[in-house]
Write a protein that binds this DNA or RNA. Structure first.
Lengths: 334, 334
DNA sequence: AAATGGATTAAAAACGTTTGCAAAATTGAA
DNA sequence: TTCAATTTTGCAAACGTTTTTAATCCATTT
């Protein structure tokens, strides 16, 4: 009645070879005489032998598993990245252990330790910001790490992103060219470098280049929730904004709906450009104009980079910047 | 320069005890003299020892890892389930290996085998339908399996769902009570039991109870994409429907937008009730009325059930039905 | 002082592979 | 044939734990 597992040893016995030989054929080692290989393969098939990956992991010190730390899979932005990661992982015969961190520091550290205990071959980290503790853990661990869609000053780990500053700059330039003077900058926490540094810099630069002075009253800091966006219209109206850059799609849909619920005409009286080009942008009415980020690709490239790192291949550049553009849809006038 | 891992043996030596004792304190075995425990703990802390989970897995035949097979994490329905699963898994000290199957048969079988090779302690399967091959694999494996949001006639595995037939029935009853005669049934593939059997039965039953004859011309079978919904209005209009039950939220948003793009007034001229109550329903304008399924809970309960199965606890009932209800929002008249 | 017995601890055998090294088999040339 | 060179194979030692079994302690009792 008990789980009667069959091992490499059983196969060896049945095939009249040593377990070393069985191991070789299982691992595709070429130093096996064809006829022997065939014989072993037959037995494997007959006994329905399945190599125990845990034992393999112990002996080879490789688990073909990578850890993926994500704030919340429920967020399309992250699930898109995760999808890209998993596809490439599968392509290279890896599996992913997915862990939600809620961007909670303690939980992150905890999760990281579990992953390392499980001997993952590499780690992909996603998150809006990287705590000092995590940074420290990353540089301490000799396990390769790649940040997907997260920037950090730590040059030790790999990371892949788009140029957030540049993208934001283009959006604001576009708005300015169309005559807007009061352009809102709406984003998640400014404490996160992507918002507080890169995007904001892009925003400021565009204003400066156009000779418009920066007004901190036009910077709106919220969390990433739809609800926060929906409630924002009051403030936006009193600030007199006529256009807005929004750092997140759900948030942007909220902003749009909030405005519409107040009988604002979009895009005639208020233009919006969002940031992530998730499928939400197509599902909204009017459709959301948005910076296009290759989400899936960011995940995919991250994983590809990680495979190189795990393989100890020479990597010319640990920082990868993917191209972006802007899709003009219903929340901008032509 | 090489990865200098410190093992249980190092700790044992430093603490002047046997590795058995170290193992005991690490595993919280009470048969250790307090003073010894303290000494060992100190050494563990000093050496920064981290037990190797792979070796543990080999020795104990438990990996504290469960496999999660999902068609596509990018879909909010599934990512919500996944989130519930992960949270409970974490609570019980498990990790999840997440694998996307694209509902592709070959890929599923492939993934399942990898998971079993990795010695996962249990498996949670999500998908619209279960192929015969997978069913066979499930019953062959002695690893516990739970289906989350998927029904199957196979009584061997656990599964947690809502009562799809009942829920659909209520929706249609509601429509009928409001005077609708031509009610569309829009769903994904009819080959999937949830659509072709449960939901459709609920639909038929409501009609029958109201003395309305079933018209197969009002049944619309599509895939689950937003685009399919958007394109559907033409057909719906020629069929003369005035209300629709839709089996998926993205699909429903598509149907709604398609209608709106044709100047249809919602809900005055066309009422819609969707099925998954994902956050999309709140983000749409008008907001989507929907059957409410406790997505997170389905995941959470599935994982909880799986822990019991893995623990070989007695489980009174392998099939769990969670409560549902209907949220009336903007796509239905009061 | 010896015997008893429960609480602690140690020893060593798994767990199922990979892998370095040496032995055996095969091949080809002389 | 023989011998060297090359392929194939087998042996056995890791890999880092858990776990069973047996030994050792130590406090009581007699």
């Amino acid at each position: 009645m008990e789980k009667q597992t069959i091992t490499i040893y059983d196969v060896a016995r049945e095939a009249n070879v040593s377990m070393a030989t069985v191991s070789r054929v299982v691992n595709g080692n070429p130093n096996v005489k064809p006829v022997t290989r065939k014989k072993v393969l037959e037995v494997i098939d007959r006994l329905d032998y399945r190599p125990n990956a845990v034992a393999r992991g112990l002996a080879s010190k490789k688990t073909t598993t990578v850890g993926v730390i994500v704030p919340d899979v429920t967020n399309v932005y992250f699930s898109s990245l995760a999808r890209g990661i998993d596809d490439i992982a599968t392509m290279y015969k890896y599996n992913i252990i997915l862990a939600n961190s809620d961007q909670n520091n303690q939980k992150e550290v905890q999760v990281l330790n579990t992953l390392l205990a499980k001997q993952v071959d590499g780690i992909i980290y996603m998150g809006y910001t990287i705590s000092d503790e995590m940074r420290a853990e990353f540089s301490r661990a000799k396990t390769p790490v790649v940040l997907a869609g997260s920037v950090d000053t730590d040059e030790q780990v790999g990371n892949v992103n788009i140029n957030y500053e540049e993208a934001t700059n283009e959006v604001i330039q576009y708005f300015i060219k169309k005559g807007h003077q009061k352009i809102a900058f709406i984003s998640g926490p400014q404490s996160e470098p992507i918002n507080g540094i890169y995007r904001l810099n892009g925003y400021k630069k565009a204003l400066k280049d156009a000779g418009i002075s920066f007004d901190s009253g036009l910077v709106f800091e919220t969390d990433y929730s739809y609800q926060s966006g929906e409630k924002l219209w009051g403030e936006l109206a009193s600030a007199g904004v006529t256009a807005a850059f929004v750092g997140d799609d759900e948030l942007a849909v909220g902003v749009k709906n909030g405005a519409i619920d107040h009988q604002v005409n979009i895009p005639e009286d208020f233009e919006i450009i969002s940031s992530n080009n998730s499928k939400l942008t197509e599902m909204a009415r009017p459709k959301l104009s948005s910076i296009t980020q290759p989400l899936y690709d960011i995940g995919a490239v991250s994983m590809r980079l990680l495979t190189k790192l795990m393989n100890k291949e020479e990597v010319e550049e640990k920082t990868v910047i993917l191209p972006h553009s802007i899709a003009y849809r219903g929340t901008t006038k032509d």
